[in-house]
Computed example of a mutant assay.
Amino acid sequence: MAMLAEARQWFEQWIGAVAVTVDGVAGRFMRRRSVELDENADGTFTARIAQAKDGALAAPVSFRLDQDAPLPQLSADWKAAFDGCRIEARLRSDHIVSRVLDFPSQAGDFLDGMIRAQVDRLTPWTAADAVFGWGPPQPIANDRIEVVFGATAAAKVDPLLRLAKTLGAASIAVSAPATGGDGVPLLVTLLDRPLRGLAGPAVPRLLRVGLVSAAATAAVCLLLNVYLGGWLQSRQEDLQHRISQRRAALRIDANGDGSGLGLLAKRKQTTPSSVMVLEAISRVLPDTTYVTELRIEGNKVQVVGMTQDAPSLIRLLEQSPQFTRATFFAPTTRAANESAERFHVEANISAYFGSGT
């Protein structure tokens, strides 16, 4: 029964994966109608069709939200236009928090984590209660990048999401105006979310033929497991027993008298001590760097502290023969009252720290 339950679960996952693939392929070749939804100063919204070809929908329509429904009610033509469309909503700047952030240029691959960790400091909301986004990074002086950040409360966007689902839209994107560091206005996308699959409920019906063949294959596999599973299990246990015996014999041959002194000597040479790791770290880091935390876990070392140039630490650690694969394991931050950057770096420790003599 457990095997049948696992097979059923696998079938369900397979159906979902194929459905997602069909949606992705269909999304590339199918063009959805786009409806632009602009927020007005009085809290109402104006909808217009991008590149409208239907004369009945050429004129925009305005409405307000009343319990997640448009008031006055939309005409039949507009309801049909919203069904399966992509809604591009643009909010006013009244309820938007906009900031211009700067980071080291090497932090471009970590912007999501670095910005998400600062949402509660940049806005009145936590990351869970806010909808936020940022524009493309722009290079500025001193090897740094500038990012335009925008956010609003999730309660401001939730009514639009419920409206889009009520009208049967396929997806919705919410953006807000912001101003870059050079004074150029731009739109920051706060949310871009699909609301339903393109293939729809027809996907499971299309997969029924595939399920029949898959069920036949599963039945054959179950029979093979019943008749051959026990034999394969016994063979595996026998091989594991022989491998264990062979490894024990090799250890005795390597140690000579089997006293284990050779293993202890080898472990001493291949296991880095905390003192040697600390000495290697002190030689690598520049004088302008201050370490506040040092953790050694297995073959990895994590260093936390303050420095003037956090990205350069990766290069210095990589150049050292004692460390490899140096990377940031947490965002690099700079507080308003601090001139240095707070870094979080980890690296693999080379197991060999000295000669055997």
Rank of each mutant, 00 (worst) to 15 (best):
S350Y: 04
T123R: 01
D102K: 09
A26L: 12
E341I: 09
R33G: 01
S320A: 05
L294N: 10
A202F: 00
R90N: 05
D38A: 09
G113W: 06
P286C: 07
S34K: 13
D120L: 01
T217D: 15
Q322D: 15
T324C: 08
E12D: 06
R315I: 12
L250Q: 07
Q233A: 13
V226R: 12
P139V: 03
R86V: 11
V212I: 15
R315Q: 13
G229Q: 04
S320Q: 01
G16A: 10
V184D: 13
Y290Q: 15
D192C: 12
I87A: 07
A26P: 06
W231N: 11
M306G: 05
T270H: 09
D112P: 02
R144F: 01
A153N: 10
R267K: 08
A219W: 12
E237N: 11
S259N: 07
L239D: 11
D192M: 11
S105P: 07
D129W: 08
P272M: 01
M30G: 06
L191A: 03
A141P: 06
L198P: 05
G354H: 09
A141T: 11
G84W: 13
A151V: 05
R208K: 14
A254G: 15
P136C: 00
L261A: 13
P139S: 04
T357Y: 12
S339H: 14
L316D: 04
T333N: 05
S274H: 12
F11H: 13
R144L: 04
F45S: 04
G256V: 01
L263K: 03
P72V: 05
L187F: 12
R32Q: 14
A59D: 04
K53R: 15
D42S: 03
A19M: 10
F353A: 07
A117S: 13
K268S: 03
Q308Y: 13
I140P: 07
T46V: 07
P185A: 09
A155S: 11
W231V: 14
V304W: 00
L228N: 08
P124F: 08
S171M: 02
P159G: 05
D109Y: 08
V304A: 02
A89G: 04
A249H: 11
S234I: 01
V174Q: 10
F11D: 09
L111W: 05
T217F: 15
L224Y: 06
P104A: 12
F132P: 04
Q9D: 04
L223G: 08
T46E: 03
T357M: 11
G16L: 08
L187R: 13
D23S: 03
T126P: 00
V25T: 07
A335G: 11
P331R: 04
L239E: 14
A19N: 07
R342I: 10
P139I: 02
Q138S: 14
V209Q: 14
P331V: 00
L111Q: 05
L163R: 07
P201E: 07
I49G: 03
G181Q: 01
G55H: 09
A214P: 02
D109K: 12
A310V: 05
R121F: 09
C85L: 06
D23I: 01
R205D: 14
L57F: 00
P194Y: 05
A265C: 00
A216V: 10
R315L: 12
A310T: 01
R193N: 02
M1T: 15
R334C: 08
G181A: 05
A52C: 07
